[in-house]
Design a protein around this nucleic acid. Structure first.
Lengths: 190, 190, 190, 190
DNA sequence: AATGAATGAGCTTTCATTCAT
DNA sequence: CATGAATGAAAGCTCATTCAT
């Protein structure tokens, strides 16, 4: 298929994303990636020294992007709105965040020589969690969120909602709304 | 340090479970498994024709066991109690169910020749979901669960709660209670 | 060519020796080795985890063998006879010892994470040198070897004679004799 | 940290020398070389068609240089002085000559299509040897060197002394003197 | 049955080398 | 000329799987 022009970092990350979602961390190969990009396998090594390096930088990249979106949300003053919007963001990036967690878990499981990259990813994850916890604590201080549940637990639930399969295939906003309603008001009949 | 003469299916599944949780589907090897069991690697082939076969039967096994527990719950008459207990069961088997999902996803991703085993696992998953949905619908009919949310959505949330990391390390019953309270009453301050 | 029986460690080392002499450390591949042995490449990995491991154990093996021969020489009482015989041994194993040195150098050049195997090989090398130095010092004490040259320097010369290409293709004993005469009496005309 | 515009052949050879000594023939890469020179890897191809070509010309270059030094020695009239000075030259260029031999061996081992470059290098080596042999024969004719040893054998010993590790780290002239004394007078006590 | 031994398929990685700018 | 980018070939290694005992 002849020689290929440049590899755009954008394409590289896009394909990485796709493969990671489709196949997961372990199923992710430079072979498949190269095929996706119609590039020679070794070409990718010109950009990243190995699979872990590439994935790490990819994760870092998306993580930063998502973090940026989260930060913007904090400009709102209403903590409930903030919470709802954070939920929407998490749902929107569900698959990507899922990848992040998967990668993190994998590194943790296989790292013999306690990797520093692991520490970085850990920090990334915590950043998101911090934001959530803070918003919830804020809501609690304002008495719009009940105080008899630990902010931490609530944050866990919100953060994990990412993983809830939207089996009814609602669009993101609708699904976000449904979940928020459920979490906020509960399922109890009134 | 001699080799065992017989492999007990119980040991086999126990080691499978352990490795699967620790390493995930792709990190699961007959090599490691054989070591765990102090058996020759090839011995395992006397029991299962290949890796997938073993994992499939293991999953089927635990799935049946969990399903049994769920069934027992239905003997209660109060649908809220049923719901809470289902939640507890799911949380208790969190890691195992997580494996099931992972395996299912993996088969889905790598199967070119639409596997029949996949169908079986899919059915397994659906069984759990059915039970949940039925209990919820029941609760809705009895007006203890609100009707303006689809039973399906609620079921998704409950089922996915498995994946919520219990970061505060509460014991299972406490964690189950916390989650149930949250899902039932919501986080809204009263 | 069908399936092959067992790999005999003897054959493995024999082929290792051959390839190492022929191609040197870097030119030594499991691919070539496997071909030599008419075995699948991966088969060798059942015995040694990697190239370095194999070569290390091979070197250790021959080194021990040669060391044994040297030890036997020390049973003689005449230090000159000892010296001559050590020379013969070194010449006989010239290629092998050359490999040892090459391997040692290579490990030294490429080891980032100061390898312990390197230390072992270093010790091996020193053992030989010690023997030589001792025999020479002994000769000096007995006034059969001149004292105005450092035993160390003399030992270096003897030890390095291994590397002197026997371009005239004398048989080993003759070549050994020639060298010994040269080293002992010098080239000066009388 | 920009790239240089021109590669000076002097720098090229200097870096080649350095890398060759440090890493040996197989460890010698254009990658590393380019880095050393702060040049693009492909730039080197503008000067030499490939790795072998470069190394060949480098070897030829230094060989010629050393040969020149040897030639100058022949202006002396005393064959013993000549011999001693040749020894000094060889010791001074020990590492370089060692490279030459290594490269020669490597080409010999890997060449399927009996390379003509090999022949050239072989000739180079022989040139040195010829000089040595001639000087020795001369000494023999003048009865300053004993006649009962073949000039060839003696030459081998002198030429190989290059490889004798100067473990005591004497300076070159001292080491040369020590070796010459040893070779000339022998180690026998008087 | 149980196993040790052998193997092939498939992925990783490194470099010499080519090519278009 | 100089170079950045792409690539293929060749080694490396790991594991599922098969086979003879």
């Amino acid at each position: 298929m002849g020689r290929k022009k440049r590899i755009e970092k954008k394409d590289l990350f896009e394909s990485t994303r796709k493969l990671l979602i489709e196949k997961g961390y372990e199923g992710f190969h430079f072979k498949a990636l190269a095929e996706q990009l119609s590039v020679g396998r070794s070409t990718i090594y010109e950009y990243y020294a190995n699979k872990d390096e590439l994935i790490f930088h990819y994760i870092k990249h998306v993580s930063d992007k998502i973090y940026g979106e989260c930060k913007k949300v904090l400009e709102h003053t209403d903590s409930l709105v903030q919470l709802q919007e954070l939920l929407t963001i998490f749902l929107k990036h569900g698959e990507t965040i899922h990848d992040m967690i998967q990668v993190y878990k994998h590194m943790k499981a296989s790292s013999n020589h306690h990797d520093e990259k692991m520490d970085v990813l850990e920090k990334e994850n915590e950043r998101f969690f911090e934001i959530l916890v803070n918003v919830i604590k804020c809501g609690q201080r304002e008495f719009v969120i009940r105080n008899d549940l630990q902010a931490h637990s609530i944050a866990s639930v919100f953060f994990s909602s990412i993983l809830i399969p939207n089996t009814l295939n609602m669009d993101i906003d609708q699904w976000s709304e449904t979940l928020f309603t459920l979490f906020f008001d509960g399922i109890k009949a009134k």
